[in-house]
């Protein structure tokens, strides 16, 4: 279950969507004026005749125009893949709004030949018509939300070992630069429901997808901020260093905890970290590590957590 808007077929448009499910692209053609019409209508958009019939077409098209949405048009459209919105012109002369996939920005040229890709977007079999380059090997893509691959830890880089008494070297770690991204973690409705049971926070905006879609501000359910915060434990952030030589290390709490943006159910999360400060306190050496958890592809963090680690 994703919060992305889905097409709701009407009696008029059902043949188009049903056709896509079966692998056929159907367009309406007018028997009176022989012109094609898209999107599906009761009447011909050229002569207003009602004499329309459905015909199967190849779907081959040229690129009329496109843009790369550097800010996703909805939080749900944030992903590791660029959101490339496009208008394509089919051989029949009709234009469609779509997205481009399987192409790098420098491969995209207005006027280029494109071919359709069936994108399966939900468990009920709904198919959206995306486009890619005419010579790209792709005819279908399963886009139903699924668990990300397990993090591969076999080739983790060797970490610089730093003794906790070597304050100068520890301080040299302080930087505005974040680490590379961690592995990705899926936060789906089942996990949110589990957390609601565990925490007792079963507010409908987290647990009732139907009500959240109708009444909530986000178009669907969102994860608890606290859930996203603790999912940090499932993310391995590639750190360049390892602190050694201490007797005890404690999570001393948080200097700052913020939830700047919502995490819709079905989001993929990843995180990164930077060392914000290193301070010698009477009880030990305190390192503040700023963890930022993001929905994959979303520039604004979902969680900012300045975690205080105390080495004693």
């Amino acid at each position: 279950m994703s919060n992305k808007p889905m097409p709701l077929a009407t009696a008029l448009s059902a043949p188009f969507w049903e056709g896509l499910k079966e692998g056929r692209i159907l367009l309406q053609i007018c028997a009176s004026c022989q012109e094609w019409t898209f999107y599906p209508r009761r009447h011909c958009s050229h002569c207003l005749s009602h004499d329309l019939s459905w015909e199967q077409v190849s779907g081959c098209a040229t690129l009329y125009t496109y843009t790369i949405a550097r800010v996703p048009t909805l939080p749900e459209f944030a992903s590791a893949e660029l959101q490339i919105l496009a208008v394509v012109e089919l051989e029949q002369g009709v234009r469609m709004n779509t997205t481009l996939i399987g192409l790098e920005p420098d491969q995209i040229k207005i006027g280029m030949a494109l071919k359709p890709v069936r994108a399966i977007v939900s468990d009920d079999g709904t198919v959206l018509l995306r486009y890619t380059g005419a010579d790209v090997q792709m005819v279908e893509r399963d886009e139903r939300p699924k668990a990300p691959p397990v993090a591969d830890q076999s080739n983790e880089p060797t970490r610089q070992k730093i003794d906790v008494k070597d304050i100068e070297t520890l301080r040299a770690l302080v930087s505005d630069q974040f680490s590379d991204w961690s592995n990705q973690v899926l936060v789906d409705q089942a996990l949110i429901n589990d957390f609601a049971r565990l925490s007792g926070d079963d507010y409908w905006i987290h647990t009732d997808p139907e009500r959240a879609r109708k009444e909530g501000p986000f178009g669907g359910t969102i994860a608890h901020g606290a859930l996203v915060q603790v999912l940090m434990s499932r993310m391995q952030v590639p750190l360049s260093f390892e602190v050694t030589g201490f007797n005890n290390m404690v999570n001393y709490g948080s200097e700052r905890l913020r939830f700047p943006s919502p995490v819709p159910a079905g989001s993929l999360l990843h995180s990164r970290v930077r060392v914000k400060s290193v301070e010698v306190l009477p009880k030990g050496t305190q390192m503040i590590m700023e963890f930022n958890i993001h929905v994959v592809g979303q520039e604004r963090p979902a969680v900012i957590n300045d975690l205080a680690i105390l080495y004693m």
Partner: peptide, 28 residues
């Protein structure tokens, strides 16, 4: 609504990307 069915599922929404696509076509 045609846009609810044929634009929003593809992420075509708001004004920014529409104007951007006009600019891209103009540029070409």
């Amino acid at each position: 609504a045609p846009e609810a069915e044929f634009d929003l599922p593809y992420g075509h929404m708001g004004q920014n990307t529409g104007y951007a696509m006009i600019a891209q076509r103009y540029a070409a």
